[in-house]
Design a protein around this nucleic acid. Structure first.
Lengths: 221, 221
DNA sequence: GTCGATTATCGCGCTTCCGCGCTAAATGTC
DNA sequence: GACATTTAGCGCGGAAGCGCGATAATCGAC
């Protein structure tokens, strides 16, 4: 029977590697917007769908591992994963003791050139009905809530819209993420002050041409 | 040189324990309020002060580990730790590869019967000037921000005040946590609807007796 | 050229929240 | 009993935000 770890920050008489340690995985709810609704990228894990993930390798950070897993599993790079929470139920993985650090990331649908036999976006509503591995359904819900909070009062903070864009395009995106209709005037009053008017108008569209905007860089980020 | 982990959720030809794994620690910013200001409980770690923590043992959850560390290091039990974030810089601990899952917990000052030579509350302002171990200064800032957010629009959600209490006592507590004065009328308008008036008045105090309140159980918790 | 579609603006009434000064009530101290 | 202290309530003016209906402008389709 192996000894238990010493208290953290005590000087142990043994090496840390003498003690039982968990494997640490990262799993990412990679969200995108397609057909005016949120989708999540799923991969096939054995016989069940799952979020893309990997085990943490020595010498890398959690973020390094997330980026590696998205590159390898989904052919995606250059993203900004955000840590959500650690899932730590002792028996969550039948192969042994595994913790998972859940992450959220966001990618424009146009950047997804997935091999559909490996990874594919699934509407969040549909994903809820699937028998996902481990606690991945819970991770998706956490991620959706976190993304909705980010989008509540900032215009497209995880840039999904190519610039420039119209107010209407921005509102449609925000409604897809919020999962509900957003009243037009209130939305415009809240967002317009946070945007940069390019001074240009849309072209090739029916009706009065819409003004075109860019995001104003957020000093907080 | 040891092999790297297989991709998460692939069926490995080797046991998970064949691969390098980190030690996982939990560190807790245990906050309390004393002298109308926030304090954090520090322990001595070698020659430097630190947050109480421990390594995660097989078969327990992070919460189990936090509770164990608070019991062993501080003689405290029955708390409700909240996960904050994982600290994962590869070189953060000179003894080897260690991740730390930072937590926040809150304890009334009256429940702290600490052996001062082991653990002692330190005003958060003072703690900022100390050479804390690892990333513990950062953990404290995260915890303070998280606690302030919890207290922003709910009355004493991490119960610190013994019941019943007066509006003035509640306001004084919230000001200690917020670190700033809160205007009386606005505070009362925001909080009073969320409290249960006991129908009783304070006694033994100078001036008009104050009404006494209890917390109304929050359906969200 | 007309029409429908689309964007944009705005006045307006309403709601919510805030800060402040003032007044009243009730207690303990002297 | 007077006084200082403390709590409590409230009127009021102001600020901020909202939803809605109405109107105007501008485009492409026909």
């Amino acid at each position: 029977m192996q000894p238990k770890h010493p208290a953290n920050s005590e000087a142990p008489s043994r090496a840390l590697t003498d003690y039982p340690r968990p494997s640490v995985a990262v799993d990412t709810a990679l969200l995108t917007v397609a057909d005016r609704a949120l989708s999540v990228v799923l991969v096939q894990s054995g016989d069940r769908p799952a979020l893309p993930g990997t085990f943490l390798h020595e010498g890398e950070t959690l973020r390094d591992a997330v980026l590696r897993s998205l590159r390898v599993k989904c052919g995606i790079s250059g993203l900004e994963p955000r840590q959500l929470r650690v899932f730590d139920a002792p028996g969550r993985d039948t192969r042994g003791w595994v913790l998972s650090v859940a992450h959220l990331d966001v990618v424009p649908a146009r950047d997804l050139t997935l091999d559909a036999s490996l990874a594919h976006p699934t509407a969040v509503g549909s994903a809820r009905t699937l028998p996902l591995m481990y606690d991945h359904a819970e991770i998706i819900e956490l991620a959706v809530d976190a993304l909705r909070a980010e989008y509540a009062d900032r215009p497209d903070p995880r840039p999904l819209l190519p610039e420039p864009f119209t107010l209407r395009e921005l509102q449609t995106l925000h409604e897809a993420i919020a999962g509900e209709r957003l009243p037009r005037d209130a939305f415009r009053r809240r967002m317009e002050p946070l945007l940069t008017d390019t001074g240009e108008l849309s072209r090739g569209t029916r009706g009065k041409p819409a003004r075109l905007f860019r995001r104003t860089p957020d000093p907080r980020r």
